Simulated assay, not measured.
Amino acid sequence: MAKITYIEHTGTRHEIEVKPGMTVMEGARDNGVPGIDADCGGACACSTCHVYVDQDWVDKLPAKDSMEEDMLDFAWNPDPVKSRLTCQIKVTDELDGLIVNIPEKQI
């Protein structure tokens, strides 16, 4: 299990243990973390699971593919470096300690 920390825009923290093979979005959804809507269910067809990855983790995650890059154009206030869609981040043991910050709004 990997411990993922989801931080709401208000500063409220949710430390969740997520099974490898799941996505960061599924971990949030299955544990009731507010602010990650995941309207498309993880199909990379919306941007409602957008987060800002903690700077220390940016280079440790797999690169964004073109589909994720395209969907991030629709996210609220995307950051060219730190923005990610949680449905596109598969959890592995190496992600233990990952920190993501949930934006104030989801579009």
Rank of each mutant, 00 (worst) to 15 (best):
A75P: 01
C49S: 04
R84K: 14
E26G: 03
A2D: 02
L95Y: 10
A28R: 10
K82L: 05
C87P: 04
R29I: 15
K3S: 13
H50L: 09
G35Y: 02
D96A: 04
E8D: 04
I4K: 11
E104P: 00
L85A: 09
A28V: 05
E104R: 10
T48D: 01
I99F: 05
N77I: 08
K82S: 13
D70A: 15
P62L: 11
A28W: 06
G97C: 05
C40A: 04
W57E: 11
V100G: 09
M25D: 03
D39A: 15
Q55A: 15
L61N: 04
T5I: 15
G27S: 11
P80W: 08
D30F: 14
M67Y: 02
Q88N: 08
N31P: 08
I107S: 01
N101I: 12
K64Q: 11
D59R: 13
C87L: 05
D54N: 15
I36C: 07
K82H: 08
D56M: 10
V51A: 13
E68A: 14
N31H: 15
M71Y: 07
A75V: 03
E15H: 09
A63D: 12
P34W: 11
P20F: 06
E17T: 15
Y52Q: 11
T23A: 03
V100S: 13
H9T: 03
K82D: 00
N31D: 03
K90E: 13
G42F: 09
V51R: 11
D70G: 03
A38I: 07
K90L: 14
E68G: 09
M67E: 13
P20Q: 12
D65M: 10
V81H: 01
T92E: 10
I36A: 09
W57T: 13
T48E: 01
A63H: 02
D54A: 15
C40N: 06
V18Y: 13
T10F: 05
K64V: 06
I4C: 13
P78T: 07
T23M: 01
G21Q: 06
L72D: 02
R29E: 09
N77W: 05
S47V: 05
K82W: 00
C49W: 08
D30V: 00
D59L: 10
D59N: 15
I16Q: 06
G42L: 08
K60H: 09
G32Q: 00
L98S: 06
D79M: 13
T10K: 02
